[in-house]
């Protein structure tokens, strides 16, 4: 299949990469750019492990055709740290053990980041509702909710 050049902003830097029209954003990030923070779980839009921010909005990168992000801004878990400092959410997830296997964590963090940007002080129900599309098979939901609440409360 004919390849095309895709240019977009990835974690603050402009990247240009050859892609085919059928490739998803997840394919391009993981297989072509070796940005492996976003995970390939179901590859079908069900689990949320591949979630990235597209112009600040959480999207399933496995359901996003790569060519649709031309010129746009993509942020993955790799882009959360600023000048070598962990994001507050990363600190809270780490210190509060908001994961077991950690496979869902990159997706969880990106959705939580988007939530707090829109609603700096979400209620427990608002957190549950906003995070509902991201599965944690290990069952760390309580710790995830508490970590987000702790960040919202200014503990980090």
């Amino acid at each position: 299949m004919k390849q095309q050049v895709l240019t977009f902003i990835l974690n603050g830097e402009e990247v240009a990469v050859l892609v085919t029209p059928t490739e998803t954003l997840l394919d391009v990030l993981r297989e072509r750019l070796q940005i492996t923070g976003p995970k390939r779980g179901c590859d079908d839009g069900e689990c949320g492990a591949c979630t990235v921010l597209l112009d600040g909005e959480p999207v399933r990168s496995c359901l996003t055709l790569a060519l649709t992000v031309e010129g746009r801004t993509v942020t993955t878990v790799e882009g959360l740290m600023v000048k070598g400092e962990l994001d507050r959410l990363q600190k809270a997830f780490y210190e509060r053990g908001a994961f077991q296997c950690g496979f869902c964590t990159p997706g969880m963090l990106m959705v939580a980041k988007s939530l707090l940007a829109k609603n700096p002080n979400p209620s427990r129900d608002e957190i549950r509702s906003y995070m509902a599309g991201n599965l944690c098979r290990c069952g760390s939901y309580e710790e995830i909710i508490e970590a987000i609440q702790a960040v919202a409360a200014g503990e980090y």
Binding site: V77, F93, Y94, F99, P106
Partner: peptide, 23 residues
């Protein structure tokens, strides 16, 4: 005591290499 999770920094920064991350 709650102890920081072994290897947990890799999991919150996306640097932990799961097998499918190996290319």
């Amino acid at each position: 005591q709650a102890m920081p999770r072994y290897g947990g920094i890799g999991q919150v920064t996306g640097t932990t290499k799961y097998v499918d991350d190996i290319v």
